[in-house]
Design a protein around this nucleic acid. Structure first.
Lengths: 199, 199, 199, 199
DNA sequence: TATGAATGAGAATTCATTCAT
DNA sequence: AATGAATGAATTCTCATTCAT
């Protein structure tokens, strides 16, 4: 069975979704393979017909969920007419998607960060798509003249991602007690002002 | 021997510094107590005369190092005459201190994040000092009129911390191949512009 | 696999019997789990598929062996027509069963007594069956008029059990160099006389 | 310093009495040398000026306390005119002494039995004095004609000791909620009847 | 494809004892 | 005689992965 077949198979998705629920419920360190198998309704050994090892489940989980996450943002961004609007959409969609998927928020912001160094390196590979998207927006904005001509895209992207990430993390750590989406507007304004950079 | 005596004792510091080196070199998950003891030049059991358990080594490490980190920033900030300068000093000192302590950077930005949830909660307690420092600066800046009157200190602090943290993490992950301190100026400018918030 | 299945499974018995041999040979404090596993011909981890922890092996061992011990006595006793005969059978069967199982004798009389307080409490629960059996015989004997009408069953049972236990312990400590079963007759006579209590 | 000097020294007694209290309070397995030292008000190292090792504390404890226990019984027994009375005194004094020393009861009947095999062998050496005392009484009783001429002293002694021991153990396990001394009379009667052995 | 019983490597911690002061 | 800081050996249990069915 080829990789593509596997990824499209029902069980592959079943196991990944089971993993999200188990990690969200029990935490990263108590998310044993046997627990995930049970949650997915398959035998332990079956996991290994679809995934190389435990790390592969987690990387795949991240790849699938982050892929969908980014696709959704990209799709929405195609309707935007300028970089300013695109920036606004990134902030709003970033917050909205985590708001709409509580389990995934816990898994992405808190639990998966406990993963070993080399798993995190693979995660970063996946994140590169998001990074490029952000840098593209900043580059475009510079060309359009809405962001400062000397804005460093790499630094700008790090501020953008660092800010969004920190805010989602804080929100998850406060047990999602406040409305994350409501922060979109002020956060966008701070970031936009930072990128316009008029001193 | 009392708690205070322990913390001031030579061995206590010896063990913490050994822990930093071992974690930086071998990674969080391979930093066994026996390895730390060997690196510190003491017997395994001696560790437990100074620390309650392994987690206590890590919490203490964080507390000591982060305490010094923040003290240094605070000290420097006392020489600043306004919030704008203080912001500049936070960015510069944050980057400088990590630049000057490569092992500690790896430990703080990459390795200790793998710690279990409850250790991270204790870490967050320590970070609160830093958070308050940042919020104070933003509050002062608003009063002085250098930051926007509608700036939300909490959001501002999250942007500030998120940005600095993301940048140091990127720098560590790129194996410190570029000059982190050189980023102080442009990063400060972006943040300052964000906080002035003139749209 | 359910609890009942486990206890009836071959491996469960295999491990318990291995534990008896290992404890008899090496003593309670040197009976490591790994040694028991090796003796049983299974991996260390397999032990934990059948037992919750090490203490559970020991409690189970006691429960199984003492259960069989008491069942055997009860069975034999059902053929007795009066309490006097029953008393005789208790003494004889008690001695005979230990005589026939040298390893078990060492484990029960010497080694398991070193167990921690809370394990001993669980052991006492198992022993209650034996205690009740003895008290029943004394009660019956009183009703039949073969034991003294003022005999206190609880005290009588303590004399009976204390005597048998002390004798088996002495025999084990003398390395079973004499014939325990041969003591049945005189011991029974002393006890019977004690219970008849004609002063 | 010679053995005798040590045993007469104040600290020697101090440490033994501290050990009794610590074992009674915390249990055998939590009676660390450092805890005993603290309770005795001396440094850990000081223990080793008076005792060869930890086992030596326990053996000495047993020797001292059991020595006093037996001396007291012997003394009382010298006032008895016949074996029947002596038997009565053994039972009564055995129960009385444990009644009067609750800490010691717990230590002797429950906690010290958890000691390793070879410590128990040394304990048995100490107990031999008691054993001889009992056998002497039974022997004398046979000669006096108050016990049965065919009574086996060794078996009789085992019944006597096993009975008393079981009763004190039961009383301690029931947390000394009833009056042990009140059992002296009926227990003596059962034993005496057993030794008279008129069937 | 699917199962699940079996495997076995790997690490934190305690505490009796020592010995320099 | 007394101290108490330092030592270091020794063991249970978990869980990712395999493979016979």
């Amino acid at each position: 069975m080829m990789a593509l077949d596997k990824k499209n198979s029902q069980k592959y998705q079943l196991i990944i979704d089971a993993a999200v629920r188990v990690i969200a419920r029990h935490g990263y360190h108590h998310a044993q393979v046997s627990k995930i198998a049970k949650e997915a309704g398959v035998a332990d050994g079956t996991i290994y017909l679809y995934f190389k090892n435990k790390e592969d489940i987690l990387v795949s989980l991240f790849r699938m969920k982050m892929g969908a996450f980014i696709s959704t943002i990209k799709e929405r961004m195609s309707t935007c007419s300028n970089a300013q609007e695109k920036l606004q959409q990134i902030v709003e969609m970033h917050f909205r998607q985590f708001s709409d998927q509580p389990d995934l928020s816990v898994v992405m912001q808190l639990e998966m960060r406990q993963s070993a160094r080399d798993l995190r390196i693979q995660i970063n590979e996946v994140l590169k798509m998001y990074v490029h998207l952000m840098e593209d927006v900043l580059q475009t904005g510079k060309e359009e003249g809405v962001f400062h001509k000397d804005l460093d895209e790499k630094l700008g992207r790090q501020m953008l991602f660092g800010t969004l990430d920190e805010m989602v993390t804080n929100w998850v750590m406060k047990e999602r007690k406040y409305d994350l989406k409501a922060l979109s507007r002020p956060v966008y304004e701070m970031l936009y002002a930072g990128f316009r950079n008029h001193l």
